[in-house]
Amino acid sequence: MVVFGSEMHVITYVFVIFELMMLAVQLYRYLSCPEDKSLLWYLILLGLLIFYNVSSGLFPDPEFSFSIVTQNIIAYGAGFLMAAYFPFYFYKSFDLKLLRFQAFYGVHLFLLLPYCLFFVLIYGKSGDLNFALGYGLIIPFGYSVYMMWAIFVAIKAKFKSRQASIYCSDSVELIAVYCAVLPWACLSLFAYFNISQWIEVLVTNCGFLLLTILFMAQSVLKARVEEEQKMTGYVNKQHKFLKRCDNFGLTPREKKIAELLCTGLMYKEIAVQEFISEKTVDTHIRHIFFKTGVNKKIELMQKLGFADEFMLSHNPLYS
């Protein structure tokens, strides 16, 4: 079953739509936190997966204005490009040093070079796709199997050195990504035996579907942990502040005004919020300064433990 009168199977179409949605979500996350480079590498991986699904789903189609040969070159190129990115992704995202050769040299020699030779040059000139499939996939298939083994060895070495086992979530993510890319070792066989599009898409995409769900679950868990840590920090800070206020003998009203003053509110703003006059605020603050033995707001904040040295030196609100 195809969609919109094209060659794309409905299953491929569903995967593409879902992956485009996830690309938008992950792009938003990356723009919110651009220092997270692992998210950037995953964005590229997701983008290549979408490109592969679209090109392999739509091509070849005689209805398009450009030649079948060009369409096949693009479609097979998307698969080779996707597979060639895997070692680089593991090398960068998980710091697997053992994959440096595969990431920068191996994929170029044993994947991209055979593709350019057999599919771009020979097939592009002769138009004989069977020849390209018969001889152009031998080296890539053998290397793909070896590449999956090399990635496995690098992951094993990572765990053995205890660099990845510090955080359980990182270990789960690393294993999940490897399981997701493992079926791609069969990509050359899919092309050689001309496996149906929907079977190929299911095998190569289901792992990434589960991986995306894992990433979403981890994002929710991470946000919850950060919120709990933030709340715990706020409670500890509040407890420290109130304890110091008690040590200086501040009244409940003086504690409240001291807190508002330390947060950066002006006398007028404090008066409005507490429904008192500015003169009354000024009187309370003079009493607070007297009890704590300070003359400036910054000194008060230091005495009450309201801000650390970085905040005091970088926030003009505290000066």
Rank of each mutant, 00 (worst) to 15 (best):
G127S: 05
G136R: 13
L117D: 03
R100N: 06
S38E: 11
N130M: 10
D61R: 08
S65P: 04
L109D: 06
S165H: 00
S161P: 03
P34W: 06
D61A: 04
L49F: 02
V145A: 14
R29S: 08
R29Q: 12
V145M: 15
F110A: 06
S144Y: 00
V69T: 14
W41Q: 07
A78F: 05
F90R: 14
Q102H: 15
L121I: 09
Y89L: 14
V54P: 12
G136Q: 13
L39Y: 02
Q163H: 11
I122C: 05
Y42Q: 13
C168W: 13
K160G: 09
Y146F: 15
D61S: 10
D36E: 12
F94R: 15
L113R: 14
F118T: 03
T70H: 14
L43F: 02
V145T: 11
F88D: 06
Y167L: 13
G47W: 04
Y28A: 10
C168K: 15
R29C: 04
L58R: 12
Y91P: 02
Y76V: 05
S38Y: 03
G79N: 12
S161V: 02
A150T: 06
S169G: 01
G79P: 11
V69G: 05
G127E: 07
A150K: 15
S161C: 06
D61H: 07
Y123E: 09
V153D: 11
Y30I: 05
S56N: 08
C116R: 09
Y123A: 06
S165K: 09
F104L: 11
S65W: 10
A164H: 07
K125A: 05
G47P: 05
P87F: 02
L117H: 07
Y89M: 13
K156E: 01
C168G: 01
